[in-house]
Structure formats: C-alpha cells, structure tokens
C-alpha cells in the first residue's frame, strides 16, 4: 500500500520536495496505477527473456576520431550561474 510515508521516501530518492498537502493525492494515484500493474502477476514469465532494446543491434561504436564540438563558451552561454568557465552551484562541502 502506497502511503504518505512512501511518497515522501520516493520523493527524496527522486530529489523532489513533496508538500504534505499533496502527498496523499500522489499516494492514491501511485496506488491505483500499481494495482493496475498487478495484472502482470497473472502471467508466468519465468522462462521469458526481458526486452530492453527492440532491434537486434549491439555494440554500436563510432570511429574514435576527434571532431569539432562545442567550445566552453558556447556550452556555458545559457548557464544559470557561472564562474571561471564552470557552472556555479550552492556550496556542496562545508
């Protein structure tokens, strides 16, 4: 059963601050969808291989050659905050 506590825990894992007044609504939505997903439990898939890629394509590599790419200036042109050619963020280490 998905409750407010689980929503707050998943919110934390997802780096989403969930306001308390919204948590119960999300809990109900998630519970409904997960209940619906339980219809998969009626199938025996113990001998079925999982599909993560629909085409039989593997080990796609390109030649290891240097081609023009964005300059530091272009990459940072729309940065929220920058300092000395880097993105700047709030303090990470005290």
């Amino acid at each position: 059963m998905v409750d407010i506590k689980i929503v707050q825990y998943i919110g934390g894992l997802s780096r989403l601050h969930i306001e308390n007044d919204k948590a119960s609504g999300f809990a109900k939505n998630l519970e409904d969808i997960l209940q619906y997903a339980q219809k998969l439990d009626t199938l025996d898939v113990s001998n079925v291989k999982p599909t993560s890629h629909v085409l039989n394509v593997e080990n796609v590599f390109r030649d290891d050659v240097v081609t023009p790419s964005l300059t530091q200036e272009e990459a940072l042109a729309f940065a929220i905050e920058k300092h000395n050619g880097h993105y700047k963020v709030p303090k990470v280490i005290e």
Binding site: S14, L16, I33
Partner: peptide
C-alpha cells in the same frame, strides 16, 4: 529538490516517482 518541485508539474512528478518506485 526545490527546483524540481517548482519546475515540474503534477503529472511529471507522478511519473518520475512511479519510475523511481
């Protein structure tokens, strides 16, 4: 957490949480 809380709408939050779960 605040950027994502303010930046994403409810359906995006719902799907991110479902996927994380």
């Amino acid at each position: 957490e605040e950027t994502r809380a303010q930046g994403f709408g409810d359906e995006a939050k719902r799907r991110i949480m479902l996927g994380t779960y």
